[in-house]
Amino acid sequence: MMNRPTFSERLFDFGNVIFLTLLMVLTIYPVLYVAFASVSDAGKLMAYSGFLWKPLGFSLDAYKSVFANPMIARGYANTMLIVVGGLTLNIILTSFGAYALSRKSLAYRKPIMLAIVFTMFFSGGLIPLYLTVKNVGLSNSLLALIIPQAINTFNLILMKTAFEAIPDALEESAKIDGANDFVILFRIILPLSMPVIAVMLLYYGVSHWNSWFYAMIFLQERAMYPLQLILREILLQGEASSMASGASSDDLAKLSATLKYATIIVATVPILCVYPFLQKYFVKGALIGAVKG
């Protein structure tokens, strides 16, 4: 027979529910605010102040202006190239590195691991990175946003720990059957590490999708700008005029009130749609990669 919870336990549970509910509201409200503002009437939104709990009227003019801008489509295309190419390189190189470092037979394993961990705390800085990218001929190229970010040290350690948790007996039996390291990695290790792979896809994918700083540093041609850099221009440099050509000054001022919110939604929705499909693997994959079995 189960013991009934005491008053203090019930009070603690109630406090947790209240705290988590408030935390959920604080997390969700900014997203709802942006969504409501993006479809609100621009004139009403400009005259309104305070909390926004529902759209003020209804208008899709901001979204029409966003999708009428050719740079949005170009930014989406560039970002998708960066995400797809970057993820492919990230997963392949991180898997190779994690597999090598997880092998107990690797010579100088500990010094190599120490040198890798060292990079998490100390780096050369932005200027050496810029000079390196420029001297190898990657400047003003989308490759400058992919190759220097090929391996993240934290993700490498996470995947290495997950590979170490796989029983050695599986590798030994595969070697008896004549399997080499590539067969072991792609036929045994990776299929058994799909939760960790999902976590890597999420970590690297979000990083590539949200990246704008290195694009601002390395890219000179505006046609190569990723979506987030286009978004930055709209939000910080007032490029509403280029997205609403032909509008009067009053209409442009009103449209700019909702334009930035519509742009945020357009740039954010794709990654939000991907997350639910990976979320079920997230906790399991992060736990496997963080705790050595």
Rank of each mutant, 00 (worst) to 15 (best):
L190K: 05
S207F: 13
L192S: 07
V206W: 12
M200S: 07
I217Y: 04
L202Y: 11
M200Y: 07
I184W: 00
M216N: 15
S211P: 12
W212H: 05
I188Y: 05
Y203F: 15
V183W: 04
D181F: 03
P191C: 00
I217C: 04
V206M: 13
L185A: 02
H208F: 15
A198P: 09
V183C: 09
I189W: 00
V196N: 08
I188S: 02
R187L: 05
V183S: 09
M216I: 13
Y203M: 14
I217T: 10
I189N: 01
L201N: 09
F182A: 09
G205L: 11
G205V: 14
A198G: 10
I217S: 04
Y214M: 14
N210K: 07
I197T: 12
V199E: 01
L219R: 07
F213H: 07
V206E: 12
A198D: 06
P191H: 03
I188T: 05
F213V: 13
F182N: 07
S207Q: 15
L201G: 09
H208G: 08
I188N: 01
P191Y: 05
F182K: 08
L201R: 11
M216E: 12
I184A: 00
I197C: 01
M200H: 10
R187H: 06
V196F: 01
I197F: 06
E221Y: 11
L219P: 04
F218N: 11
F182S: 08
F218S: 10
G205N: 10
D181M: 03
N210M: 10
V183K: 12
I189Q: 00
F213P: 08
L202G: 09
W212I: 14
L202P: 10
F213W: 08
R187F: 02
V196H: 03
I217F: 04
F182P: 05
Y203P: 06
L190W: 03
Y214A: 14
Y204I: 13
L219D: 06
I188E: 02
N210F: 01
L185T: 01
W212V: 13
H208L: 14
L219G: 03
A198W: 08
I217P: 05
Y204V: 13
A198R: 10
L185K: 02
V199P: 02
P191D: 02
L190H: 05
F182H: 09
